[in-house]
Design a binder for these strands. Structure first.
Length: 600
RNA sequence: UGCCUGAUGGUGUAAUGGUAGCACAGGCGACUUUGACUCGCCUAGUCGUGGUUCGAAUCCACGUCGGGCAGCCA
């Protein structure tokens, strides 16, 4: 087994699919373990896809195989190039440093090559070698196999296993019967091979309008499995395709295209979610009917990842965008990969969450707390600490002279094996968090109160002498005395006080917009009643003007910060600019105080 | 009254005939220049009834309950 050095601690997962793969490896059933991740480019990838990606790529990397990224683009009416591009970017980002060496891309423009295997004609399209320059490769596309797929359809007709049907969509539905009632044979079921060939050629030539005819598999209209009741293989759609342009007006359906795409690419294990279980007999029927010479891929199903407090169906996500509830697919509140990236969630946290959810066939919901824990856990290691005040209130140290500054050493990340420090300047006037002062403190309040003491983090202990208010009674200034003997290196540095609070120099601190994101929905299962829009959290975004320590002026996109005692933050990749900084809160720190009775 | 599929603490998941474990959540405590992190302790589970067996979460039977399937979507 190959273990990626970037994640040495992750134990090798074990589950029913990996057990099957291990057995196939042991019996050398396939020349190589090949999986595939086959999204339809009709929306952005989300956390549900992340689980599939982790399984598909995970199993490939554990077995020295690869995983093909394939666009399942057989329905031109719903698909767009924008989605193709976002999918590529999101997959690359999610697997970077973990399984990028297993990412299967094909040579740009390549289509399955004809060959002969075991004396039989065959087509095969392996991936380009790892490390081929980006400009020379591209994902796999089902649409790049349309010629081969068409050829296989002709063969099916010749074998008497497919026929052209003239029934309308409505009639087809009626003829299909119901789950507990057998269907009826189409009156066109027994056409001759010659007539089917002719009609199929004319379908391809564009002689018939959309829906006028279809190509159907000849299986069994009385099958208890609905998907075996002569399912459609091809439908007529006079619609241009984002990859093939105007070349085709007949397009294959998923059940026909998917299994053959797997075969053409040499996929060994085709892993998908539970709703395709009923389709598996059809997947096998198509491949077995064609008498193909190479080992056939097999499909295995697992349950989807459904986190609480989210909706993940593309339809619902599009609705959130169209209703203006979120800005776009990459809004930091979206469960999309790109939304999570923009929010500051590291790819490693998404992987940890997705892998930790496990692989079973039990339909489950995973509590969002598991995801949040994974995010905090990763960020605790990755993020450098900085001081920032989100809701500033002025605090004056009356025993410091105006203009006087005292340099303090602030730790960058206490989790590092050898933590480094940076200087921060304590001044007579600083900002502290409004929450960190209480004129009438609740029980067990450790922070600043009249006559009380706290430590200013990395600086010294201060004592509150006076509270200044405006005529309306609102606190405008807190006046304190600093005990300089408690600074680092001072004689009383070890003096303990219960509370430590963060601060930013009033004169040196910089301004920034900070976007405080929270869960998009306020209930665990937003769409339980089909009314997810009603369950949107009205406070999923709060924008504040914050004061930051000066070193943050050069913060770069992609850097993770912990604003001490507050949470984890990143520079917003879209709206931030030098001098006009915008930070996104990825997630708050755990706050056991907030849960204490009598607070907030 | 069809077919497929499943059921282990609140949630997710392990144990593949031999001590029901782990994680998250929750509770209590320790530590703390982050009420964070970390550490310790605690709460809490095999859907039911039979059967096989020295021994069953695991194998068998019958139930119960849940999820999926009738797109020319994927």
């Amino acid at each position: 087994m190959t273990v990626e050095p970037t994640e040495p601690a992750s134990p090798a997962p074990s589950d029913f699919i990996r057990d099957i793969v291990a057995q196939h490896v042991a019996e050398k059933r396939y020349p190589k373990i090949v999986t595939r991740f086959p999204p339809e480019p009709n929306g952005y990838l989300h956390l549900g896809h992340a689980k599939a990606i982790c399984i598909d790529f995970g199993i490939a990397r554990e077995n020295g195989g690869h995983c093909n990224l394939r666009m399942d683009d057989t329905n031109p009416a719903k698909e767009e190039v924008e989605y193709v591009e976002s999918i590529i970017a999101d997959v690359k980002w999610l697997i970077a440093g973990w399984a990028d060496h297993c990412l299967g891309f094909k040579p740009r423009g390549a289509t399955p090559a004809a060959g002969v295997v075991n004396g039989q004609p065959d087509f095969h399209l392996p991936p380009a070698p790892v490390g081929t320059p980006d400009a020379q490769v591209e994902p796999f596309f089902a649409s790049h196999y349309f010629d081969q797929l068409h050829g296989y359809a002709v063969r099916l007709i010749e074998l008497g296993k497919a026929y052209v049907c003239d029934l309308s969509p409505e009639e087809t539905e009626t003829y299909r019967g119901a789950p507990d009632r057998p269907g009826r044979n189409s009156p066109f079921r027994d056409r001759s091979v010659a007539e089917n060939l002719d009609l199929f050629a004319r379908m391809k030539a564009g002689e018939f309008p959309d829906g006028a005819r279809s190509l159907r598999a000849k299986i069994d209209m009385a099958a208890p499995n609905m998907w075996l009741r002569d399912p459609l293989l091809y439908r007529i759609r006079h619609t241009p395709h984002h990859q093939t342009g105007d070349k085709w007006c007949i397009y294959p359906l998923y059940d026909y295209a998917h299994c053959l795409s797997d075969y053409l690419e040499g996929v060994s294990h085709s892993l998908c979610s539970l709703e395709f279980t009923d389709h598996r007999p059809l997947y096998d029927w198509v491949l077995e009917s064609l008498l193909l010479p190479r080992p056939l891929p097999r499909q295995y199903e697992f349950s989807k990842l459904i986190p609480t407090y989210m909706v993940v169906s593309k339809r619902k996500l599009i609705h959130l965008i169209n209703q203006g509830i979120v800005q776009d697919w990459d809004d930091p509140r979206m469960p999309t990969i790109s939304g999570n990236r923009r929010r500051g969630v590291p790819a490693s946290a998404i992987r940890k969450f997705a892998i930790g959810a496990g692989v079973t066939k039990f339909k489950s919901v995973t509590e969002i707390e598991v995801f949040e824990h994974a995010i905090r856990d990763e960020l605790n290691t990755l993020a450098v600490r900085r001081l920032a005040v989100l809701d500033p209130i002025k605090l004056v140290l009356t025993n410091l002279a105006p203009g006087e500054t005292l340099e303090c050493a602030a730790v960058n990340n206490p989790q590092d094996e050898h933590p480094t420090t940076r200087p921060v300047q304590l001044a007579r006037e600083v900002f502290i968090e409004r929450d960190d002062f209480a004129e009438v403190p609740p029980p067990k309040y450790f922070r600043l109160k009249p006559g009380g003491e706290v430590r200013l983090k990395y600086a010294c202990i201060i004592k509150c002498d006076e509270v200044i208010k405006d005529p309306a009674g609102r606190i405008t200034e807190i006046r304190c005395t600093a005990d300089l003997s408690t600074r680092a290196g001072g004689p009383n540095v070890d003096r303990k006080v219960k509370g430590t609070i963060h601060w930013v120099s009033a004169s040196a601190g910089i301004d920034a917009e900070v976007r405080l994101y929270d869960r998009l929905f306020s209930v665990p299962e937003p769409d339980a009643d089909g009314q997810f829009l009603k369950n949107v959290n009205p406070r999923s975004l709060e924008v504040v003007r914050a004061k930051l320590e000066p070193s943050l002026a050069t913060a770069k996109t992609g850097e993770h910060f912990q604003f001490e005692r507050l949470g984890y933050f990143v520079v917003d990749a879209k709206d931030s600019a030098p001098g006009r900084l915008v930070f996104n809160r990825t997630i708050s720190l755990k706050d056991t105080w907030a849960k204490a009775p009598g607070t907030k």
